[in-house]
Design a protein around this nucleic acid. Structure first.
Length: 110
DNA sequence: TACGTGACAAGAG
DNA sequence: TCTCTTGCCACGT
């Protein structure tokens, strides 16, 4: 697929597969793509994904379930509200049931 | 063409 | 156990 030519494209492809009500992390996605030390790039890809409306970037958080990227969304609580509308419980920018809804592409997609 | 930046993660002190 | 430092890759200027 020509969309898989770049790291960014592959990141987007994985993020699109995250089901509603579930969340994943930058590290897991990076690891799934074969570069576990490139979590930063995944975050950067999310930043660039704002101009692409197909990417559920709000379902991607850091390894502890903290909404570090919320500030990049329009409005202070948009990211939080999007997740809550999908059934995710968030308290102080932290996903409380994070361990229960974590979506690991290396496991789910195998 | 080259350098700096960035929504992270893991190891070492 | 907590905090600081380093590594990583692609994009924008």
């Amino acid at each position: 697929m020509k969309d898989d030519t770049t790291f960014f494209k592959r990141v987007y492809k994985v993020v699109r597969l995250i089901p509603s009500g579930r969340v994943s992390t930058y590290g897991l996605i990076a690891a799934y793509l074969g570069t576990p030390k490139s979590a930063r790039i995944v975050g950067y890809a999310m930043n660039a994904s704002h101009k692409i409306h197909d990417i559920p970037a709000h379902r991607v958080v850091n390894r502890i379930g903290l909404l570090t990227g919320k500030h990049h969304f329009s409005g202070t609580n948009l990211m939080k509200e999007l997740l809550e509308s999908e059934g995710v419980v968030i308290k102080k920018n932290l996903i409380t049931n994070f361990q229960n809804i974590i979506w690991d592409p290396s496991i789910e997609l195998h």
